[in-house]
C-alpha cells in the first residue's frame, strides 16, 4: 500500500511540475462546470438539442477519462524516453503490481470526476449507486488509454498522435444511436459501446447492469492483454 501511495504521489508531482501537463488537470474541472451550467443553458437556448443531451453527456464523461489517460500516458512515455523505466525492471516489484500502481491513479481520477459530473447534471437525477457503476466503467477507459498509448509510442510526439487516434474508437460507438438498432451490435467491439448503451438504459429507467458488467469485464480483458505487451517492452 505504501508503495502504491508513493508511486501515485510521485506521478502527481511529475504531472504538476510539468507545465505542459498540469494545464490538462483544469479540463476535467471545466467539464463538470460545463455539465452543470453549460448543458442546461444550451438546452434552454436550443430546445432541439434536448434529445441529444444524453449523448453529449456520454461524450463528456469519456473525454474526462481520455484527459487523464492522456496525462498519465505522457508520464509513462517520458519514463521510457529518459530510461527510468529500466530502473523499474530491476526493482523488487512484479510487473503486475507495477502496472496496477501506475494505472490506479488515472482510474481513480477519471472515476471521481465522472461521478462529480453526473452528480451535478440537472437532467436525469441519476442515483449515486448507478452513477458509481457507470463512472467506474467510464473511468476504466483512462488506464486502457494509458497502457495503449504508452505501449505503442516511442516518444511524446508519437504519444500525441496515438492519443488522437485512440479518441476515434472511443467516440465511434456513439454512432450506434443514429443507426437502426439492428446495426448497433457492429460497435460492440469497442469497449465504450457497452458504457454508452448502459448509460442510455440507465437514464431511461431500463435494466443496465448487464451492459455495464459486460463492459467492465471486456475492458479489463483488453487492459490485461495490452498490459502483457507493455510489460515486455517497457523495462528494456
Amino acid at each position: 500500500m505504501e508503495k502504491l501511495i508513493n508511486v501515485a504521489i510521485n506521478d502527481f508531482k511529475l504531472v504538476f511540475r510539468d507545465k505542459s501537463l498540469r494545464i490538462f488537470f483544469v479540463f476535467p474541472v471545466l467539464s463538470v462546470l460545463v455539465v452543470l451550467y453549460g448543458f442546461p443553458y444550451i438546452a434552454n437556448l436550443f430546445p432541439i438539442i434536448r434529445p441529444y443531451i444524453s449523448i453529449l453527456m456520454m461524450s463528456a464523461t469519456m473525454q474526462n477519462s481520455l484527459m487523464f489517460g492522456f496525462i498519465y500516458s505522457m508520464v509513462l512515455i517520458d519514463e521510457k524516453d529518459t530510461n527510468v523505466a529500466k530502473v523499474y525492471g530491476v526493482l523488487p516489484v512484479s510487473n503486475f503490481w507495477f502496472v496496477i500502481f501506475r494505472l490506479i491513479a488515472p482510474f481513480l481520477f477519471a472515476t471521481f470526476f465522472t461521478i462529480a459530473m453526473l452528480s451535478v447534471e440537472p437532467f436525469y437525477g441519476i442515483s449515486f449507486v448507478s452513477n458509481f457503476y457507470y463512472s467506474a466503467l467510464a473511468g476504466l477507459v483512462a488506464p486502457l488509454m494509458v497502457l495503449f498509448v504508452a505501449t505503442v509510442s516511442r516518444n511524446k510526439l508519437d504519444g500525441m498522435t496515438w492519443q488522437k487516434l485512440f479518441n476515434l474508437p472511443t467516440s465511434l460507438p456513439l454512432l450506434a444511436f443514429f443507426v437502426p438498432a439492428s446495426y448497433s451490435f457492429l460497435f460492440a467491439i469497442f469497449p465504450t459501446h457497452w458504457a454508452y448503451q448502459g448509460f442510455k438504459r440507465l437514464i431511461s429507467g431500463e435494466s443496465f447492469a448487464l451492459y455495464l458488467l459486460f463492459g467492465f469485464v471486456y475492458t479489463v480483458f483488453l487492459i490485461s492483454l495490452i498490459a502483457k505487451r507493455f510489460s515486455k517492452s517497457h523495462f528494456q
Binding site: N10, K13, T82, K86, V87
Partner: peptide, 25 residues
C-alpha cells in the same frame, strides 16, 4: 544495478528520486 546512462526523473530532486526507488526495498 548501476546503468550506463543516467536515468532519473528529471522533474524530481535527487533526494525524491532516491526516496521513490528506496520505497520498493
Amino acid at each position: 544495478v548501476g546503468f550506463e546512462l543516467p536515468n532519473h526523473y528529471l522533474k524530481l530532486t535527487a533526494r525524491e528520486n532516491l526516496q521513490l526507488f528506496a520505497s520498493f526495498y
